[in-house]
């Protein structure tokens, strides 16, 4: 599917469309309805989707890819300085929702987003809001490490240069160093700052991307399955890093791994077929889920 889109003229490339569209409830081949636990009704979200100290909030969020609806009426708050994990089977809409929060979906021409979405109470889809500024405030780390084909230094300095955040070379040097230290990468690369970022290992590349994101001093960092392409040791390093970052940033992380969600997050949101099924404190979700679907998922009956 992705390949077909890549080759179609005029379409943005490599959009992970497939993983975002909900699975049909009717089997395409047999025409039968999927049975058992898949058939449980979803009537609104259970748990506590809303919080008092919301950094970002979404109400009535619908997302469409062309004619297909990928997200159905999601209401969700992301609290200040918390890590919220979004879990669910593939194609459930969690990544699409994440991309709503910094308007990354704008780069896909057929994608349409409705509902109210705010950052610190400001409408992020409003006419006055600038997506460039929004994305500087709401940074993003992607599934696959995607360093630019530049040196490590230039990768980290990229955003600062774009936005004019450093007025001279030494300020920029300091910023790069500070960002790399925060991302826990400085010790490993301090002698190789001029070497290409693409030469690092996968885990280092992902930390480089985190350093790059925090160099523009965002308020929120969105992470889209940041460790899915990494080995367990690199994953552990990044998870530790997230815990340290929590004091300064609000983090929303999409993950496939329930253990990771349980380890790093304070709240967990469970998505299913484009709908937000349950949101609650992480402990609660994993020990005593309210919704049947959530329980089925975390007990490994599907996923």
């Amino acid at each position: 599917m992705t390949d077909v889109i890549n080759t179609m003229p005029g379409m943005p490339r490599a959009v992970p469309l497939e993983s975002e569209t909900p699975k049909p409830a009717v089997d395409a081949i047999t025409g039968e309805k999927h049975r058992s636990e898949f058939d449980v009704e979803i009537n609104g979200t259970v748990g506590k989707p809303l919080v008092d100290n919301a950094k970002m909030s979404s109400r009535n969020c619908d997302v469409f890819y062309g004619d297909k609806q990928a997200i159905f009426g999601v209401d969700l708050d992301i609290g200040n300085n918390e890590i919220i994990a979004m879990i669910g089977p593939s194609g459930c809409g969690k990544s699409t929702f994440l991309r709503v929060l910094n308007r990354m979906n704008d780069t896909i021409s057929i994608c349409r987003v409705t509902g109210e979405h705010t950052l610190d109470g400001e409408d992020i889809y409003g006419k006055k809001t600038d997506p460039v500024l929004l994305r500087a405030r709401v940074g993003m780390v992607f599934q696959k490490p995607n360093p630019f084909p530049k040196s490590i230094y230039d990768n980290v300095a990229y955003g600062a240069r774009l936005h004019g955040l450093a007025s001279n070379r030494s300020e920029l040097d300091d910023l790069v160093e500070a960002s790399l230290i925060k991302a826990g990468l400085f010790k490993e690369v301090k002698d190789d700052l001029q070497k290409p970022g693409t030469g690092l290992s996968g885990g280092q590349q992902q930390r480089l991307c985190i350093a790059r994101a925090i160099a523009v001093d965002p308020e929120v960092i969105l992470m889209d399955e940041p460790t899915s392409a990494l080995d367990p040791i690199a994953t552990a390093t990044i998870e530790e890093l997230m815990d340290e970052l929590r004091s300064n940033y609000t983090i929303a992380i999409v993950t496939h791994s329930m253990q990771q969600a349980a380890r790093v997050s304070q709240r967990t949101a469970y998505f299913h077929m484009g709908k937000l099924v349950e949101v609650n404190d992480t402990d609660k979700v994993f020990t005593n889920p309210e919704h049947q679907l959530t329980e089925n998922y975390i007990t490994g009956r599907f996923g």
Binding site: N102, V132, L133, R135, A136, M140, V141, P147, V216
Partner: peptide, 8 residues
């Protein structure tokens, strides 16, 4: 995406 995600 990496570049847009940083506000370029």
């Amino acid at each position: 995406d990496g570049s847009y995600g940083m506000g370029a």
